[in-house]
Each structure stands twice: as structure tokens, then as C-alpha cells.
Amino acid sequence: MKNSLNHLQELESESIHVMREIASQFERPCLLFSGGKDSIVMAHLAKKAFWPAKIPFPFVHIDTGHNFEETISFRDSLVEELGVKLVVGSVQEAIDSGKSVEEKGVGASRNILQTLTLLDTIEQNKFDALLGGARRDEEKARAKERFFSHRDDFGQWDPKNQRPELWNLYNGKKFPGEHFRVFPISNWTELDVWMYIRSENIRLPSLYFSHKRDVFMRDGMWLAHAPFMQLKDDENLEHKVVRCRTIGDITCTGVVLSEANCLDDIVAEIAATRETERGNRADDKRSETAMEDRKKEGYF
């Protein structure tokens, strides 16, 4: 249609507007980069927002030490390609220095420990705005998030007392020590993200495409095996054709049985799926309001 945008163009424009607002309203912004598809899309949007200049803020990766190897190598090559600075907050270092204490037993995860390292990294670098790739369609607590989400000087979110957010007028005013989490792709759905990756031809880690891997079943989810994962007695390793629908810390990222090995197949698979992508995230299954509770503490 003449003089109108399709929905992906409109979403892209909204996200670019938010990114430029961050660069304008804050002194020390950064982009939280997890290595997952949403943060890869964020990196792509940031590239477009400031072109032909370079992205005017560093990327921050909170590394649990339990990442897929490919996540790390993909991260390093993307950062080099874009010419941005990378800041790594290491959960392993926090554990080694005694700052963090590792969870024990079967199902142990470093997911929760990320929050402490994230908040330390923010403080050390004096970041005042952190761009994140969270989307409102992912999870019910995230459905309540603002684009500009205020955090107090302890990094906490107060969901019942959020600032009203009207039109596209974003209020980034804060006191020293406080910061904002900003979510430029709030209004995108999982399918939008995949359609966009396909139409923009964005490079992704091969983990997202079908491959053979040692996996085991736990609580109805397939989990990828890694040397630091403890198996229960009744759990057995199997060799399956799988792909990741989301990528995070290995201990809590489920994989799906899938033959989809190109973007067209993935888009068709997502469009036909009857399960949400966080349905295979063990970290969300700990309680009915697990995400809200973690977010209040300062989680992503």
C-alpha cells in the first residue's frame, strides 16, 4: 500500500527510535548481549540506527561460564565485525573469589547468580541504561514491562509503581546510582523476530539449526548435555537431531527435536508450533511468578 509500512517495518522503526533515544538521553548506555537470537537482532537494529556511524555504546555479556562454545566465538566475531567494545561480566570469577556461591545438586543452575554479576558490572562501569532484547510476548511478567524500565540504586524493579509511558515520549530521568533497562523490541513476537532474521538475512549461530547432539529428558524437556551437567539415575543420554529455540546458559536451555535446518523451515515451524519458546526454559518453571520475582531482584 502506498505511504504505509508493513508491520515489520513499523516495529523496526519503533525499535530504532528507542535506540536513538537511549543514545541521546543517557551518558553511559550499553547493550546486553547474550548471544541469543534476540540480542543478535538488537545488534542488527543498533547497526541500522546509527549507520554510517558506529554503534555508540559497548556490548555487555554476563558469562555464566556454562555457555555453548559457539555462543562465545559467535559473540567475539560479531563484536569485531561491528567494531564495538565488549565488556564481559564473569560469573565464574565471582564464584572463584567467593562473592557468589554455586547452587548444588541435580538441576543446579547459574541462572540466578547472573543477577549479582550483572549488578556488579553495572556498578563498576557506571552504566546508566542497559538495552535488553526482552519481549512482552515471552512471559506474563514481561507483558507488563515499559520500554524504559526504571531500576532503583539496588537494581530493583517495582512492578506496581511503574512510570506511565505515553505515545513515544520516553522519560529517562533518574537520580545518580539508578539506571534504566530499555527494551526496544518489546512489541515483537517470536515469529516477528524470525521473519525479520529471514528478511534481513541476519547471520545466526548454527545452534539454531538442526544438528545431532547428546541430550537427555528432564521434566518433559530435552536438555543438551555438557560435562558439568549431573544426570539423575533414571536419565539417559540419547543422540538426537535437535535445534535450540532459545539460547542461554546450557543448564537451563532446552532443545527441541527438529529437522529445520534453514530459516524458511524454522519460520514454518514457529508458525505451526503449539508451545511457547520459554516453555522449555527450566528457569521459568520454578514457580508461577518465577520471572517477576527474579526481575524484582534485578534480573534481565
Binding site: D137, E139, K140, A143, K144, P159, K160, T189
Partner: peptide, 27 residues
């Protein structure tokens, strides 16, 4: 849609919740 703990406890909608759906015609 009522995703916050307080909303679920009290059975009310406190805040704006955003929901997404699409048909073959529009998002």
C-alpha cells in the same frame, strides 16, 4: 493477562498488559 503476583492474588488487572496475536490479514 494478569501476570503480576498482586494481580493474580487479588484477581484484578492493575496495569496495562500487552497481548499479541495475528491472523493472515493483520498483526
Amino acid at each position: 493477562t494478569d501476570g503480576l503476583r498482586a494481580e493474580r492474588e487479588q484477581g484484578i488487572t492493575i496495569d496495562v498488559a500487552y497481548r499479541y496475536f495475528s491472523t493472515p490479514k493483520r498483526k
